[in-house]
Design a protein around this nucleic acid. Structure first.
Lengths: 192, 192
DNA sequence: GAAAAACGTGGTCATTTGACCATAATCAGC
DNA sequence: GCTGATTATGGTCAAATGACCACGTTTTTC
C-alpha cells in the first residue's frame, strides 16, 4: 500500500505485518512539488505527517519577512506542528517541501484510534517525542554556546545527508546566522 | 506533610485529598543553600524535582568555562534533566539553586508507580511535558529571530517575577547575549 | 533546450557585539 | 552590623557580523 512506510515500520519497530497494514490503511498519500506548502500559517495542523520521500521544512516568517527554520524533516521521519495539532489552534508556522516530496497523512482521530489500538505504535510515538525533546535541548545549547563555525560544523556532523540537498540560505536560517557569515566560514575552511 | 506542594496540587489538578496525600507521602524534602547543586554534571538524574520555594537553574559549562542556562525553575514548577532521567545516563548539565530553595524529590521508581496508580497525576505530567515542548519551540524561534533587545523584552514579559531575583549575568546567559549587550540595552531603555 | 529564477560568492562599509578592565554600589554570610 | 564577595555599569578597542549590491554559475521549469 505504502511501501516506503511499511519498510520503515518493519525496520524500526516490532509491529506485526497485520498491524503495519492496519496503520498503513488509514493513511492518505500526497505528493508535493518543490516549495509547495503542506501547512500554512493560520491554518490548523490536523494531521500527523510521515515523509516517505523528499524533504520538508517547518519555518516561520518574522515581521521583516525573514524566514526562520525550526525543523527539517527528511524521508523516514515524522513532522507536524505540535501545538497546533494538540490544541487545534491556528499554526504560526509553515511547512513546505524543499524538494519534490511524498508524504503520508493521518487525521488526528484516526491516529488517536491507532494509538490506543496498537500499543507498539504508541511506544514508537513516545520514542519519537522523547528524541525530539532531547534534540531540542541539545540544539538550544548549541545555539547558545557555539560560534557560527561550530554551529555549521555541528550541522554537517548531524545531518551530513542534508548538506547537499539544502540551499545554503536555509542552513543559515536554521542556524540563526546570516548567509554572509556562512559563506565566509566555507571560504575559510577551503583555505585550510 | 508538604503544604506548598499540596496547595499546588489542589489549585492545579482535580486530585482527591487522598491522592494528594499519597503522592506527597512519597516525596523527600530537601533544602538548598544559594549556589548549592542539586545535580552535578556527570551524575545521573534520579529524581523528579518539585520546587516548593526558591529558584533553580539548569545550566551547562562550555569549554571556555562559560555558563549557558537552559532553564529556570521557580517555586511551583518542576524540573529534571530529562535525558539523564529517562536513559539513566550521566547528565551533561548542572542544576543549582539561585537563592535558598526548598525542593521535593521523588525517586524514579516511586514516581513511575504513582503515575500508573493515579491517572490524574499522569494527566498533569503530560500537560507539563506538552507545555515544555511548546515553550521550547517558542524559545528557539525567539532565539533565532529576535534582536537582543527583543529577547530581553520578551524575557521580562514572560518572567516578570524573575527579573528582580536573578543577577543580570544569568539573564544574559539564558538569552545567549553578553552582559555588556544587556547593560547597553538597559542603559538605552532608561534614556527613553 | 531555452529562458527565467535561484543560488553561491565576494566587495564594501557601517554597526553591533564581545573581551578586558576599572570602579562604585549592592548584597550575602557570619 | 561588618567584611568580603558579587554585581551592574561604563570606557575602550578590536573583531565579528549583517545589509546591500553585483556578478557569474547552476538549477528549474516549461
Amino acid at each position: 500500500m505504502h511501501p516506503e512506510f511499511e519498510k520503515y515500520l518493519k525496520e524500526n519497530t516490532n509491529l506485526t505485518p497485520d498491524d503495519i497494514h492496519h496503520i498503513s490503511s488509514k493513511a492518505v498519500g500526497k505528493t508535493l512539488r518543490r516549495n509547495e506548502l503542506l501547512l500554512q500559517s493560520g491554518n490548523v495542523c490536523k494531521q500527523k505527517v510521515f515523509i516517505a520521500k523528499g524533504l520538508l521544512r517547518t519555518y516561520s516568517i518574522d515581521a521583516n519577512g525573514n524566514e526562520h527554520i525550526l525543523q527539517f524533516a527528511p524521508e523516514h521521519s515524522w513532522t507536524l506542528d505540535v501545538e497546533s495539532y494538540d490544541k487545534e489552534i491556528p499554526a504560526e508556522t509553515n511547512m513546505g517541501a524543499v524538494e519534490p516530496t511524498e508524504v503520508l497523512l493521518w487525521h488526528k482521530d484516526d491516529f488517536n484510534n491507532l494509538l490506543s489500538e496498537v500499543p507498539e505504535l504508541n511506544k514508537l510515538s513516545q520514542q519519537i517525542i522523547s528524541r525530539n525533546i532531547y534534540y531540542s535541548r541539545q540544539r538550544m545549547l548549541t545555539t547558545l554556546s557555539a560560534t557560527p563555525e561550530e554551529k555549521y560544523d555541528d550541522f554537517i556532523q548531524r545531518f551530513p545527508k542534508l548538506l547537499t540537498r539544502l540551499p545554503l540560505r536555509m542552513i543559515a536560517s536554521y542556524l540563526g546566522i546570516s548567509i554572509k557569515t556562512l559563506t565566509r566560514i566555507r571560504h575559510n575552511q577551503l583555505q585550510r
